[in-house]
Amino acid sequence: METVLRVSGLRKSFGGVPVLDRIDLEVSEGEAVGLVGPNGSGKTTLIRCVSGLLEPDSGAVEVRGTLGVVFQEDLLLPWKTIYENVELGLRFRGVPEGERRRAVFEAAETLGISEYLGMYPRQVSGGTARKAAIARALVLGPDLLLLDEPFSGLDLGARSALSEALREIRGRGTAMLVVSHQIGDLVGVADRVYAVTPRPARVRAHVRLAGLSPEERVRALARLLLGSSPGRGGTPRSPL
């Protein structure tokens, strides 16, 4: 499988305070990779560097293909319906209306939000809004989807539905880098998981989950977490 994302030796600091310290990671075609670390460890900064919104101080980010980004907050435009929000990127690219419509309905079906397309963001639940934000990135047909804390603020039912939707997206061949501070969120989604240290973020360990049974995945992730040392960012939360 080809590598769609290669991050090597990435460093970033703000005002002399290091946030990312020599981050190395890779995501292959069609692979779902998790990145777990405590709150404030610099995961969002990493996503912003990978997506090109921030310039790293040093190191390299190589992206093969197109990139879709789902931010930690849904950031849907409140004056547009879910449908209009989802199709926005296609409109910007001048995609004809029929094609846009087809793409929006397909993405909405994958994420199970077809019935909400005519509603405004204020009229739907947090879980549906999150899925709409994912659909907005997905309609652009990215080779790699970056998801920043996609499970945060969602209840158990919404988390489980979102996990299922992400598995389906991965099943269709879209690679993903899913960032989370809760290792449990990644059990059913990720093929591999990187753990980063508290700030400055550095890849501390890395575990492969693909091919493991659910119980083995849980054990592997627990070992990954227990191998951590509490740092300035505080003790990571319970894994499950």
Partner: peptide, 26 residues
């Protein structure tokens, strides 16, 4: 205007006029 909205516009490939009309002005 929320800077994060501008990040979304950039990631969706909006030109400056598109971002102004769709996000900034509303």
């Amino acid at each position: 205007v929320d800077e994060r909205l501008m990040d979304v516009m950039k990631m969706l490939g909006a030109s400056k006029p598109q971002a102004f009309l769709n996000a900034v002005l509303p």
